[in-house]
């Protein structure tokens, strides 16, 4: 018999209870258990960063955390970044404006990583932004649009 646990997780402000197999990663649980497919699994060994989500406010790899470990915790995914009325997060607006995405696959992890990073580092240098996203691989953009977007979003967020 598969080893399972009942868990209760708050995702994007909404509480979910589920019975999960203990070997299931948080990322797979979000995607296939809750249908929140915005979180992408890119490498499943913790390097590409596509699956990054925030757990209790801190950006983590959802492929390197078991769903059962999120029991009782608050998870924020890319689906939870925009306001409920659809107003985009300043980072989402900035990514749009600066062409910070092409295929869109790394984008959710970039956004969740940068949302946490900018909260802790509201006025970063370009170098700091580049190091912050060095754990997020993008094959399309060459990173420049992403870096520009992050710097622009930081300005917007400081102004607000």
């Amino acid at each position: 018999m598969a080893d399972t646990r009942d868990i209760e997780v708050t995702v994007n402000g909404k509480s979910h209870t589920a019975n999960v197999e203990t070997r299931t990663s948080l990322g797979d649980f979000l995607r296939h258990g809750l249908g929140l497919t915005g979180t992408h699994m890119g490498c499943e060994h913790g390097v590409c960063g596509a699956c990054t989500v925030m757990v209790d406010g801190e950006a983590v790899r959802s492929c390197l955390m078991l769903a059962v470990q999120a029991n009782g915790q608050e998870v924020t995914t890319v689906e939870g970044l925009a306001d409920e009325d659809g107003t985009l997060h300043p980072l989402q607006e900035a990514f749009w404006k600066h062409h910070g995405l092409q295929c869109g696959f790394c984008t959710p992890g970039m956004l969740t990583s940068l949302a946490a990073f900018l909260r802790d580092n509201p006025d970063p240098s370009e170098r700091e932004v580049r190091e912050a996203i060095s754990g997020n691989i993008c094959r399309c953009t060459g990173y420049q649009g992403i870096v520009d977007a992050a710097l622009d979003a930081a300005k917007t967020m400081q102004g607000s």
């Binding site: 497919t37 699994m41 749009w96 404006k97 995405l101 869109g104």
Partner: peptide, 17 residues
Amino acid sequence: QRMEDPRLLTGHGRYVD
């Protein structure tokens, strides 16, 4: 600005998986 982006930025892309 790209028509594709609002969908992809909010986690509403539709990839095979």
